Simulated scan of single mutants.
Amino acid sequence: MPDILASPEIQAFASGFPVMIGHVLLTFALLALGATLYAWLTPWKEIALIREGNAAASVAFGGVLIGLAIPLAVSLSVSTSLRDIGVWGIATLVLQLFAFRVVDLILTGLPQRIQEGEISAAVLLVAAKLATALILAAALAG
């Protein structure tokens, strides 16, 4: 048994696992921060609408979460330290939140339609936000 614990694989796991946990926790914290900022910045209150059973708001906010997670995941994959993840993660959030806001402004009238529970409006909004997330993620990957 002592030979197994001294193996390079177990030693690599023992040293790398805590680092991975730190990277994942920071990325989840950035995701929570981004989702909170988005909810705060939007003209409509999706969380309240979701609590009221509005499926369109749920679809739209789900798209936001995925749209924030995609570039954060790429940031996590290309970064080598907590500082690196923090810097690129924050840059990603700022750019993504800005892009989301622009999409919201371009697709005028969608917030009202989402408030009214129109799923088609939510799906279009999600598609636009996911498209910006994929482009930003590709830019990060270089």
Rank of each mutant, 00 (worst) to 15 (best):
L33Q: 09
L33V: 13
G34C: 14
A35F: 12
A35K: 02
A35W: 08
T36N: 07
L37M: 14
L37E: 08
A39T: 07
A39L: 11
A39G: 14
A39Y: 03
W40S: 15
W40P: 00
W40Y: 15
L41G: 02
L41V: 03
L41W: 08
T42I: 00
T42K: 05
W44P: 00
K45W: 03
K45H: 15
E46S: 14
E46C: 04
I47P: 00
I47S: 06
I47C: 00
A48E: 14
A48D: 15
L49I: 00
L49F: 09
L49C: 02
I50V: 15
I50N: 08
R51S: 08
R51T: 01
R51C: 01
R51L: 07
E52K: 14
E52C: 00
N54A: 03
N54Q: 05
N54K: 02
A55L: 14
A56H: 10
A57H: 04
A57P: 01
S58W: 07
V59M: 06
A60Y: 04
A60T: 09
A60M: 04
A60C: 11
F61G: 00
F61L: 11
G62F: 05
G63E: 07
V64E: 06
V64H: 06
V64R: 05
L65I: 14
L65H: 03
G67M: 01
L68N: 10
A69H: 04
I70R: 01
P71R: 02
L72Y: 04
A73E: 06
V74N: 02
S77Q: 13
V78G: 10
S79L: 03
S79G: 12
T80D: 12
T80R: 09
S81I: 05
L82P: 02
R83S: 15
D84R: 02
G86V: 02
V87T: 15
W88E: 06
W88A: 10
W88T: 12
W88G: 05
G89D: 03
G89S: 08
I90Q: 02
A91E: 03
A91W: 01
A91G: 11
L93I: 08
V94N: 05
V94E: 09
L95G: 15
Q96A: 10
L97C: 06
F98K: 06
A99Q: 08
F100A: 09
F100R: 07
R101P: 00
R101K: 12
D104M: 07
L105F: 10
I106K: 10
L107M: 09
L107C: 03
G109E: 10
L110C: 01
Q112S: 09
R113L: 11
R113S: 14
I114F: 06
Q115L: 12
Q115K: 10
E116S: 13
E116C: 00
E116K: 13
G117C: 02
G117V: 04
G117P: 04
G117R: 04
I119M: 13
I119F: 13
S120V: 13
S120T: 13
S120N: 08
A121H: 10
A122G: 09
V123N: 06
V123I: 14
V123K: 08
V123R: 12
L124M: 11
L125Y: 12
L125C: 08
A127M: 14
A127S: 15
A128C: 10
A128V: 01
K129Y: 00
K129E: 13
K129P: 00
L130A: 02
L130P: 01
A131L: 14
T132A: 13
T132S: 15
A133K: 01
L134G: 15
L134D: 01
L134R: 00
